[in-house]
């Protein structure tokens, strides 16, 4: 028994250590064009973009910071402020509400620990206490096995919930409407992003316009076909939008 417990703890130690090592393997750096996968880096990027008046770009950087760290309160406040300025409504989903209560990584680790502990205990009790036991003690072992199975299911559910809540799970499919700078729209010959980008029913330049999507809005990428992307709005409306007007939420050079 003692040997078994030691073995179990050693295995968990093996499992958790590399996860932390992987986070730490990307050392912080404040120079160079390389994208640093840290929420603080994106937060700073957002502040810089806001300072130069590019609110849409700032909102993208802040959203990236919040994907990496959903509990980054400064980034959240700044993003809310920017979205308010841009006139984009903030829709709080059940995911964002739950994430604010509990860290997804914490849920995954606790869930995994519970599930694996329960698995090892089930095996041990089955072979040592349940098989060949007297009827009375067999019944007791049976209830113990049932309880451990429930704990296993609970742990698995927690790990699944943690993954579902994790904004990184869905981030790969999310794009932001960030059209390129337009020289024509501004009378002062200033570079400005167009305020809206048309969502079209067909992937052609003059296709019928379904909606005008404000710059900085979130869209769910369905598929990409060259210069056109098929996207879904938060309202559920689907249509085609120019790929050049989209920026992925997850930076392409991670």
């Amino acid at each position: 028994m003692k040997w078994s417990l030691f073995f179990l703890i050693a295995l968990f130690g093996y499992g958790i250590t590399p996860l932390r090592a992987a986070d730490a393997s990307n050392p912080p750096s404040t120079s160079g064009p390389q994208i640093i996968n840290s929420p603080e880096h994106f937060y700073n990027d957002g502040l810089e973009a806001e300072a130069r008046g590019d609110l849409a770009d700032a909102s993208l950087a802040l959203r990236r910071a919040l994907v990496l760290n959903p509990h980054f309160s400064q980034a959240r406040e700044k993003l809310n402020e920017l979205l308010g300025k841009m006139g984009i409504p903030i829709q709080a989903t059940w995911r964002t509400k739950l994430v604010s209560l509990c860290s997804p990584d914490f849920l995954v680790i606790i869930g995994s620990l519970l599930a694996w502990s329960a698995s090892f205990l089930v095996v041990w009790i089955f072979f040592t206490r349940y098989l060949g036991a007297q009827e009375s003690s067999k019944k007791r072992s049976y209830f113990l096995l049932l309880s451990l199975s429930f704990i296993f299911l609970l742990g698995s559910a927690l790990a699944f919930l943690g993954t579902t809540l994790d904004p990184r799970t869905r981030a790969a499919k999310i794009v932001i409407v960030l059209p390129k700078y337009d020289f024509k729209t501004s009378p002062e010959h200033r570079e400005e992003r167009p305020a809206t980008t048309p969502l079209r029913s067909n992937p052609v330049e003059n296709g019928p316009i379904l909606a005008s999507i404000p710059t900085g809005s979130l869209l769910l990428l369905q598929s990409r076909h060259g210069v056109w992307s098929y996207v879904k709005m938060e309202s559920g409306q689907k249509g085609w939008i120019a790929t050049s007007a989209l920026q992925p939420l997850v930076p392409e050079t991670k």
């Binding site: 986070d23 929420p39 760290n69 930076p251």
Partner: peptide
């Protein structure tokens, strides 16, 4: 500006290679 950086992965924990390896090792041990 925030100066303290804490690098994070873009992949959720459950999809990361290290987690999958640890899970595989635990399963083998079991």
């Amino acid at each position: 500006m925030v100066k303290d950086y804490s690098p994070r992965s873009w992949q959720p924990l459950l999809q990361r290679k290290e987690y999958l390896l640890a899970t595989g090792a635990l399963f083998l041990a079991l």
